[in-house]
Structures are given as C-alpha cells and as structure tokens.
Design a protein around this nucleic acid. Sequence first.
DNA 1: CTTGGAATGTCAACAAAGCTGACTTAATAT
DNA 2: ATATTAAGTCAGCTTTGTTGACATTCCAAG
Lengths: 165, 165
Amino acid sequence: MAEIQGGENLLFLTDEQLRQGIEAMFFAYRGFTADPDRILATLAYGRAHHRAIHFIARSPGTTVNNLLAILGVTKQSLNRVLRTLIEDGLVISRVGSADKRERHLFLTEAGAALERKLSDAQRARMRAAYRAAGPQAVAGFRQVLEAMMDPDLRRRYHAIREDDR
Amino acid sequence: MAEIQGGENLLFLTDEQLRQGIEAMFFAYRGFTADPDRILATLAYGRAHHRAIHFIARSPGTTVNNLLAILGVTKQSLNRVLRTLIEDGLVISRVGSADKRERHLFLTEAGAALERKLSDAQRARMRAAYRAAGPQAVAGFRQVLEAMMDPDLRRRYHAIREDDR
DNA sequence: CTTGGAATGTCAACAAAGCTGACTTAATAT
DNA sequence: ATATTAAGTCAGCTTTGTTGACATTCCAAG
C-alpha cells in the first residue's frame, strides 16, 4: 500500500503526464469555445460578449463591479462590451434601488434568446463529452479543474450559485 | 441497473451540471495560463509566443505548416511571433534537407531555457492540482478533455507524441 | 522541360479585446 | 464636510488575431 502511494501510482505526476495534461487543456479549450465562436462571428460579437452575457444570465441583476471581478478585466474593457450589448438591446442596466451608484444588469428577451443559443451549442458539446466519458470521469474532471483555479476565483466559482438568493 | 443508467446517474447531464462544467473550464483556464502569463509579461512576450515555444520544444524540427495546424492561426499571425523569437535568438529556422521549401524549427539554448521556465511554472500548478485530486480524478479529467476536442485536434493531440521519431 | 501548385514569407490594413492613465459624476460612508 | 466608492468616459497603446495581395522557391506531373 505504501508502495502504491509512493510508487507507480504517482506516474500521473511525471513531467510527461503533466505535459499531456497541459496540451489536453489547450486543445480542449479550443473545442470548448469553437461552437459559440462560430455563432458569435455571424453577429459581429466576440468571446468577450459571450462571457458577459453568460454571467448576466447566470446572476441576473448582478452589478458591474461583480462582473468585473468574475471576468478579471478592466472596467474600460468590460464597458466597451456592455455598451454595445445595451445599445443592441440585449442587456438592460438598471440603477440600484438600495445603492443608486450601482447598475444592475439584466438580459432582455433578445439577450436571453442569444444566451440560449450560445449556451445550447456549448452545452451540446459538454453533454457529448460527459456522456462519452461517464459520470466518474466527469467527477474527476470537475475536481481537477477546481484544483487548478486561483483560490479567489474558486470562491467566486462557488459563489455564483449561492448568490441566487 | 436499467434504473441507474436512465435515472439519477444521468444527473451529471443536467443543464445545471453542464453549466457548472462550462464555468469550471472558464475559471480553470484562467488559472492554467496565469503563471506563464506573469513570466511572459516581464519579457514583452505573450501567450502566442509561449504556445509556439511549447510546441517547438515538444516536436523539435517541426515545420511551420505543422505548427500552423496545431495552433490554428494564420501563417501571418504565427510568422510575426516566430520572427521575433528568431530575432531574439530563441528559435532557429533551418531549411529542410529533403524539401527545401520547408523550414524546420528548433529552440536555441536560450529558447530551451525560457521554455523550461514557463513549463516549470505551468507544471507546478498542474502537479498541485493533480496531487490534490488524485489519480482517478486525473484519469477522468483527461477523458473528458479528450472528448471535448474537435476530432482533428484530437488526432493532432495524440500525434504529437508519436511524431517523435 | 515546362508548368502548375504547394510551402513559405512578407507587406499592408484592419479588428477584437485587452491594458494604463486621467478625469467626471453621483451617491454613499465616515 | 469630506473621503470613498461605483460607474462611466476619453485617449492612446499593445497583442494577437484576421484578409488580401504578391514574390520566391521548389517539387512533381504532364
């Protein structure tokens, strides 16, 4: 047993195994973004728009500041994206009732429709991958991904669902 | 048994589970690139340089065309990156002996040193994540990532190691 | 042996999406 | 009152991707 712990069972930590994991992440992320990217390209939007739409859909009424922290970009960068989405009628920005400095972000019907379209495409690939790999593999997949996150982002990752209150 | 297959065991395919997987990919990828990005920023290089260096290190003597297919960018985009790496003495481009149209790419000592530095940082995070999650989780992680790739890239992903001949 | 096509490289122009820095406005908190 | 915070804006810059056009070199097929 001590043999297994210290011996061959740590083969998954060899440099070669780690390199393969790195490359797998690289190639898989390409697949991960490929389907939404194709849809976005037809609409003159990019990945940045997708991310904003995704997290607004996920946490309706979220503030700009919260979104900034989740996305990890500057407010100037996010603002450019939000401005086009608001102009195009996909997102609404409402002044906060408690704190009127804050803007709360929501998807319009059109925004929600696009979100569904993008999400459907991305989930279809995830579903196929999950189905092909099976429940146990999926559990492992999630565990490793979580362990790869920066602690701060891991907290935010968990907080997204708890925030729905 | 039929119950399990069609019932609760497919909970890993609910939209909510899939969404969580999507978000996990997003946050984990940020962690995945964070450490090399910090190093690259101090050197006036970017992720594009890292990718080129990585795959040249992985398959020394690879051709520009092969690299293009792996990286999935235009030759103009790759060329700009390669040009700076060659100018800076990190990469050598050698005219092919069999086919003199082809250029074979190699890292210089300095290039290999930078590759090691970037790779060490990235592998340290992977190693920590792998260790935290355990061998079984890692196997699942790899399975799901593979299933997410486009078939073409999946072939290239496998071919990288077989190409070392 | 010529010619067509492939591989490579280069020039120019452009776009998406990030960045910094400086500044305003409004509202809250101290 | 004053300081701080949330949001937005303007300007300018960088990286990394894109098209399109074109030159060079070289292999291979007719």
